[in-house]
Amino acid sequence: MLLLIQYTLIFASVLVLVALGGCFSEHSGVINIGLEGIMVIGALGGALMMKFLGGGAPAAVVILLVVLSSVLSGILCSLLLGVAAIHFKADQTLLGTALNLLGAAVAVVLVRAINLSEDIDNVSSTIKYGEAKSAFIIRIGDFEFNWFMLIAFVVLILSYIVLYKTKFGMRLYACGEHPQAADSVGINVYKMRYAGVMISGALGGLGGLVYITAGVSEWKFENGVAGFGFLALAVMIFGQWKPLNIGLAALLFGFFRALSNVYTGFDFLLSLKLPSVIYNMLPYIISLIVLVFVSKKSRAPKAEGIPYDKGQR
C-alpha cells in the first residue's frame, strides 16, 4: 500500500511538472507535443551530471547541479521548437514530432559515444548514476520520500500564482487567447511565446529527470520515457489548462500508472488474473475515455497552434 502511494506520488510529480510545462507553452499559444523528446533530453542532462558528480558531493550541491543541468538541457531543446514555431511559423505538430524523434536519437547517440569512449566493448545506451541519485531520497520508515515530490508541489503552487496573480501570467494568457489584442497594447507576443516555450522546456526537462530517478538507479536511453510526455498532454487537457485541475488530474493518472508497477502486491488484483499488459495500457485507455468526455466543451487557448504574424491583423 505504502509502495502504491509512493509510486503514485512520484509519477504524479512527473506528470504535474511536464503537464504544467505544456500548460505554459499552450497558454502562450504554442502547442508543444515535443514534450516527450524534451523529457528525454532533460533526463540525459541530469543523468550525465549525476554520473559526473558521482557519490562524493554533498546532497544539496548534487540536487542543485543536477536539477540545473536538466532544466538547462530542457530549455535548450525547447528552443528548437521555439525558434522554428515562433520566428519561422513552422507547423507545430510537425516540429513536436521531430523533437520527439530527435530527443531519443540524440540521447542514444551521445550516451553510446560516451560509453564507447570509456570502454571499447560497451555498446549499451545505459547510464548508471546510483550513487548520486541517493541525494534525492530520504527514507522515512518504509516510505522513500523524494525531494522531487516537494519540488513538484511547489512548482504547482507557483504556476497557479504566476498564471493568475502576476502581470507576466496575464500577458502570457492574452498571447494564447488573442495575440492581436496583446500586440495592440504593446505586449511583445514573440517574447511572451518564447517565455512560454522555455518554461515548458525547463519543466519538461525536470520532469524527465524525475522520471528516470523514480525507481531505478540506471537508465537505458533506448527506452526514452515510455510515452510519459504524451500522458502529460492528456493530463493537461483533462485539467483544462488550469494548474490546480492539472494537479488533481496528475494524481489520478499517476495512480493508474503506479498500479501497473505494484499491482502484484494486491491480492484482489492478482486474483483478477489480468495480464500485466492490461495495467500498462490502463493509463492510456483511461486518458482516451476521459478525452472523449471533456473534449466536446474543451476550452483550449483560442490562438494555440496558430503562428502569430505581425502583418496579419
Binding site: 504524451f230 498532454l233 492528456a234 495500457m281 492510456y284 485507455i285 486518458s287 482516451l288 478525452l291 473534449s295
Partner: peptide, 15 residues
C-alpha cells in the same frame, strides 16, 4: 467528440 486526432492517435499508438 471533437477529440484532437493527434492526442487520440498517440494514446491509441501505445494501446
Amino acid at each position: 467528440f471533437n477529440v484532437n486526432e493527434v492526442i487520440s492517435c498517440i494514446m491509441l499508438n501505445w494501446i
